[in-house]
Amino acid sequence: MTGSRATADDDLGADGDLAARIGHLILEEGPDDPHAALEGPDHLRLVRRAALAHEASSALLQQSVTAARAHGVSWAVLGQELGLSRQGAQQRFGTRAEDAVPGTGEERADERWLGPVTAFDELGELDLAGELGWHTVEAGMFRHRMVRTATRWEHRRVLWARTTSSYLTDGWQVGARAFPWLYLVRDTGLPVEGR
């Protein structure tokens, strides 16, 4: 390529496989066979560096999708480009900015997304949110859509297959479904302090 910049696809075709190029960067321009020189603890270094590269590329992908959405690219087109369905792309890459009140650049005061959370920390985060009057109404991958009221809420997570009738008789209601979990919520009736 002389003098002019070709498209990203042309660059990848001319320079070789992107995965191989990233692999060489991770290994700091290592040998032709990157696994031949790795022994013992070097494998852990490779895992650590690959995780860092994954984190950086994930952030770049999220920024790219957000920019494309800001320029009017539909979820269907993005999903096709990413090998996902429209809904899959929206669930994976949707951002808080898309939940904003149109034209204001701000989120609605009574709704927000909680996340990222995992199965290990989400109940603690939901408990904290519940104390402030928030309860889950939708659960997606690594996040919950929350709605705020003037009262405190309790949250429970149970397996979908488990019978929930005992919970529902105690004032619990289904806040969200995200297989294999049901997220149950219960209004305590106690006012949120300072509200």
Results as ranks from 00 to 15, higher is better:
Val174Tyr: 05
Glu125Asn: 13
Gly23Cys: 03
Asp9Leu: 07
Met146Cys: 05
Gly88Tyr: 05
Leu27Gln: 11
Ile22Ser: 02
Arg5Pro: 02
Gln90Asp: 10
Glu131Tyr: 00
Glu193Val: 03
Asp33Asn: 09
Arg108Gln: 11
Leu182Tyr: 09
Arg177Met: 10
His24Phe: 10
Ala89Ile: 03
Arg143Trp: 13
His24Met: 12
Gly40Gln: 13
Phe120Ser: 14
Glu138Gly: 10
Asp17Cys: 12
Val192Phe: 03
Gln80Ala: 14
Glu55Ile: 06
Asp121Lys: 02
Trp160Ala: 07
Gly133Leu: 08
Pro31Lys: 01
Gly133Glu: 10
Asp170Phe: 01
Glu193Tyr: 00
Leu52Ser: 12
Leu190Ile: 05
His135Ser: 11
Leu114Gln: 05
Thr118Tyr: 07
Pro191Thr: 04
Ala50Ser: 15
Asp15Met: 11
Leu128Gly: 06
Thr2Gln: 13
Ala20Asn: 02
Arg157Gly: 07
Thr151Gln: 08
Gly30Met: 12
Leu38Met: 15
Gly124Thr: 03
Arg69Glu: 11
Leu78Pro: 02
Ser166Pro: 14
Met141Gly: 00
Glu39Gln: 09
Ser58Asn: 12
Thr164Lys: 13
Arg145Glu: 09
Pro116Leu: 01
Ala67Pro: 00
Gly105Ile: 09
Asp170Pro: 02
Gly23Arg: 03
Glu111Ser: 13
Phe142Lys: 14
Gly30Ile: 08
Ala59Leu: 14
Leu61Ser: 05
Gly115Met: 03
Thr118Ser: 15
Arg157Asp: 05
Gly13Glu: 11
Arg195Val: 13
Asp10Met: 05
Thr136Asp: 14
Gly130Val: 04
Trp172Ile: 03
Ala178Gly: 04
Trp160Lys: 06
Leu182Ile: 08
Gly40Tyr: 06
Arg112Gln: 13
Glu125Arg: 15
Arg157Leu: 09
Arg145Trp: 07
Gly79Thr: 09
Ala67Asp: 15
Leu123Pro: 07
Arg177Val: 12
Ala68Trp: 12
Leu190His: 12
